[in-house]
Every structure is written in structure tokens, then in C-alpha cells.
């Protein structure tokens, strides 16, 4: 008779990382997290699914946080779909957007629309505040990484500006 003891004792040893954790690991905002910290973060993250052409958020809408694409695609655009729509970026799995909303109360600066059946992970201001209260070390890591991401963007924008001015 086959014993059920050993399979139970070693249950979970060959456990693979969840789809959520794998996606989160590719996001610079969560850089430097340990496996334990990723599983803590996984408890906070919201999983949302979107149909093609469904708005994730609209331009000028009040923003609450950032999204990370697990699968599918999202286009970032300004202008209405009926009128002159200008697509700023086409994002795919592993990309993230809307992170500025984590730091301020400014409305969204562009619309985000799902281009396919998409699964997104959402990380919002209340989650960040909750993380800062319950695990300040982890919360501060997120803030530092966010600052780095935004700093990097600013550097690139400055570079583009200089290039445009010089010709």
C-alpha cells in the first residue's frame, strides 16, 4: 500500500511561483524584494480582467494607482476614440502604467484602454498606505523604487528636450 505520509511532508517543496509573483518580479517598482516580501505584496495586489476596448481609466479621471499587465495589451492614448485619438504607447505583458497616481492627487494625464482580453494587477494608494503602516520597510522600498522610476523618466525627458532644442 502506498503511504500518503511522505507526499504530504514534502508537499509544497516543488511549489512554483505564482503568475502574479512572476509578473511583479519584472516590475522595477518592486525591485529588490525578497520572496517573502513578494508573497506579502501578493496579498495586497488586486487582479482585474478587461475586455477588448474596455477603458481601464479615462483621461482626467481621478487616479488611485498603478496597473501591471499580466497578459493582453493596453494602449495609452489622449483624445476620444470617436474623435482625434493619439496613441502614446502600446503596452504588453510585464509593462506597467499609472504609477504617478500613487504619489499625487492629480487626475490621469491620458486614457488607458485594453486592446485585447487582458489581465491586470492593480496596486493602489490605499494599498500603499496600508503597506507603509503594516510593513514600513517594504513600503519605503516601494517609495524608493518609485522615486527611481520617476527620476529615470525625468532624466530621459530632459535628454529628449535637450536633443529637440539642439536640433
Amino acid at each position: 500500500m502506498k503511504s500518503a505520509l511522505w507526499p504530504n511532508v514534502f508537499k509544497g517543496w516543488n511549489k512554483t511561483e505564482s503568475e502574479t509573483v512572476l509578473t511583479l518580479k519584472s516590475v522595477p517598482v518592486f525591485k529588490g524584494f525578497t520572496d517573502k516580501e513578494f508573497s506579502e505584496l501578493e496579498q495586497l495586489i488586486h487582479r482585474r480582467t478587461y475586455k477588448p476596448n474596455e477603458y481601464v481609466f479615462k483621461n482626467q479621471a481621478p487616479g488611485e494607482g498603478m496597473y501591471i499587465i499580466v497578459f493582453g495589451g493596453v494602449k495609452i492614448s489622449i483624445g476620444s476614440r470617436q474623435g482625434k485619438e493619439q496613441v502614446l504607447a502600446e503596452l504588453t505583458a510585464g509593462d506597467f502604467f499609472g504609477e504617478l497616481a500613487l504619489l499625487g492627487d492629480e487626475p490621469r494625464s491620458a486614457s488607458a484602454i485594453a486592446t485585447d482580453h487582458s489581465k491586470l494587477l492593480g496596486f493602489f494608494k490605499p494599498d500603499l498606505f496600508s503597506l507603509l503602516e503594516r510593513n514600513p520597510v517594504l513600503g519605503n522600498k516601494v517609495l524608493m523604487n518609485l522615486a527611481q522610476v520617476i527620476g529615470e523618466r525625468l532624466r530621459k525627458t530632459n535628454q529628449l528636450l535637450v536633443e529637440a532644442q539642439t536640433g
Binding site: 496579498q43 495586497l44 488586486h46 477603458y55 481621478p62 487616479g63 493602489f124 490605499p126
Partner: peptide
């Protein structure tokens, strides 16, 4: 978290804000 999962995509961020 379970409760907010039931909020539709359209009202999700507003619902989080309200809570």
C-alpha cells in the same frame, strides 16, 4: 480585498477611494 473584487471595473478605483 474580497469585497472590492465585486466592484465593476468602471467603479473600481472610485469604490476603493470610498472605502
Amino acid at each position: 480585498k474580497t469585497l472590492v473584487q465585486f466592484i465593476s471595473n468602471k467603479y473600481f478605483e472610485v469604490g476603493l477611494r470610498l472605502i
